[in-house]
């Protein structure tokens, strides 16, 4: 059980950190202008030149490896909802690192998601 909680901690930290770094990087390189191949290639070209995207991909790689390990240990209906603990860390990161305006209604939604995840994990 302890090794599962530790691995879940690795998954949550790397996943939330990776998502925040990815969002920061994407905001720097700008919006995808269209879904035609030329626009997509130009968008991907800008993405591969951004250091934040590479940091995000490294963290998301760690997150993927820990997800694989967890999936080999426990049912998917437990592992995947449990990974949603990163919502709280992610929303704090969005507010304080990305300077997004998180409204009370959005906080309430995120809190409900968190309570739901706690209920799911409690059944494990």
């Amino acid at each position: 059980m302890i090794k599962m909680i530790l691995m879940l901690g690795v998954l949550i930290c790397s996943s939330a950190g990776g998502d925040i770094a990815m969002t920061y990087g994407m905001k720097r390189i700008g919006e995808l202008q269209g879904f035609d191949p030329r626009s997509v290639l130009r968008f991907l070209g800008r993405a591969v030149k951004c250091g934040w995207v590479w940091l995000a991909l490294s963290l998301l790689g760690v997150s993927f490896a820990s997800l694989l390990i967890l999936l080999s240990w426990a049912p998917i209906s437990l592992v995947v909802p449990a990974s949603a603990f990163n919502y709280v860390a992610g929303t704090f990161g969005a507010k304080y690192l990305l300077k997004e305006n998180v409204t009370p209604k959005r906080w309430l939604g995120v809190a409900l998601v968190f309570v739901g995840v706690l209920l799911v994990v409690a059944t494990g």
Partner: peptide, 13 residues
């Protein structure tokens, strides 16, 4: 029930 609560949260967001 946990999954249902998650969905309500998602609808609010």
């Amino acid at each position: 029930i946990g999954v249902f609560v998650i969905c309500i949260g998602v609808l609010l967001v």
